[in-house]
Design a protein around this nucleic acid. Structure first.
Lengths: 198, 198
DNA sequence: CGGGGTCTTGATCTCAATCAACCAATGTGG
DNA sequence: CCACATTGGTTGATTGAGATCAAGACCCCG
């Protein structure tokens, strides 16, 4: 089934039915590349735009969000996409009915909302920023309301999203871990955090 | 003509043909309010979302951008909108043809792009942030490429958008003015800056 | 007039950036 | 399989840029 799609997606592992799994830290597509739109089914995707001095953080996409919609208009991506956690995506927008006004309006609305969420990650103390990021990532996973295990992104990514340095992020997480505010598990390569979602 | 529209817009001055002029600093609509979508024809609009502790900055809209599109789906606004500079808006999306997939995709694409622009306002030194903000505001006005006169928002607004304090913004602008990097004109109530757009 | 809002400027302080090591885990090549 | 480089994370010491606190100027409006 998946063979029907033009798979320009790097690092993707075909999981049948057109789904693709991308490992934490791997790129999904690059800016300027030709390709189509995707819906994020699981995990968190980081979007980067080419700024004056190299790529700069330009947005986040959570489970349920659509990425690469600009290709339906332009044919190629304006952002680069990377998986911050293990990610699953499926093609989107290929089917004509999906490009209905209602669906597009829905995508537009969640995009605006997500943009505000992302902006809020750069407000307040390091504690607040990191807690908000984790809460946000948790929302993308929680189907019911409860306790969710969130894969911790690389410190470098957390730093760039929150507008802090890696050192500050490291120190903050260490402190939150000590005070019991955060329950971090796993070895340094693959860490997870328990987050309460409301 | 404009009487046909349901005018829930506060502080709006009917300018004929459904256009509305809003003065610098005035609110356009509030979150939760019923209403429709608008296209910004002139000026810069600040969008705010209700956060955990009061309203927080959630995005920017420049000339050409669509605001309040969520109402086409939800019926009411999720953001509040305020004019940072003198603004003109016209109703959008009421006409069925305007909700075509192409137009919605266009709106979606520019929204994502604008979100990245807004995010970038919180990167780098105060100088860089303020210069980027002014450049961004200039882009919304420049039809050809040239020198553009931009109305300076209130310091409080600049501060909240860039993630700085009013004092830092005041000092930074004063310094840029001294070094000749910025040409600020007008009295304190209504100041303008000359910005080069590329 | 008085009062509230915006802007400006000064003095001080604090917290995150910076600079610098170091460690652990992983990967690489002979 | 071992030496070595690389990458990601941690921790410490120091510093400085921007936050904070405070006061005054200015303007507009009632």
């Amino acid at each position: 089934m998946s063979g029907k799609h033009d798979l320009r997606v790097a690092n993707a592992i075909d999981a049948g039915e057109g789904w693709h799994a991308i490992a934490r830290g791997k790129g999904i597509y690059e800016a300027g590349q030709a390709g189509g739109a995707w819906r994020v089914m699981l995990g968190v995707v980081r979007l980067d735009r080419i700024g004056e001095e190299g790529p700069e953080f330009g947005g986040l996409a959570l489970a349920g969000d659509v990425i690469g919609a600009e290709t339906l208009l332009l044919g190629s991506y304006t952002f680069a996409a990377r998986a911050l956690t293990p990610v699953m995506i499926e093609p989107w927008g290929a089917v004509a009915e999906r490009a209905s006004p209602e669906v597009l309006l829905q995508a537009l609305t969640t995009t605006e909302d997500r943009a505000a969420d992302t902006l809020a990650l750069r407000n307040g103390s390091p504690d607040r920023r990191i807690n908000r990021l984790l809460a946000l990532m948790g929302r993308g996973l929680a189907h019911g309301r409860k306790l969710v295990r969130v894969a911790l992104p690389q410190l470098r990514d957390i730093a760039e999203m929150t507008g802090l340095t890696v050192e500050t992020v490291s120190r903050t997480i260490s402190r939150l871990k000590e005070t019991g505010e955060l329950d971090v598990r796993g070895n340094s390569r693959e860490r997870q955090v328990w987050v309460t979602v409301k």
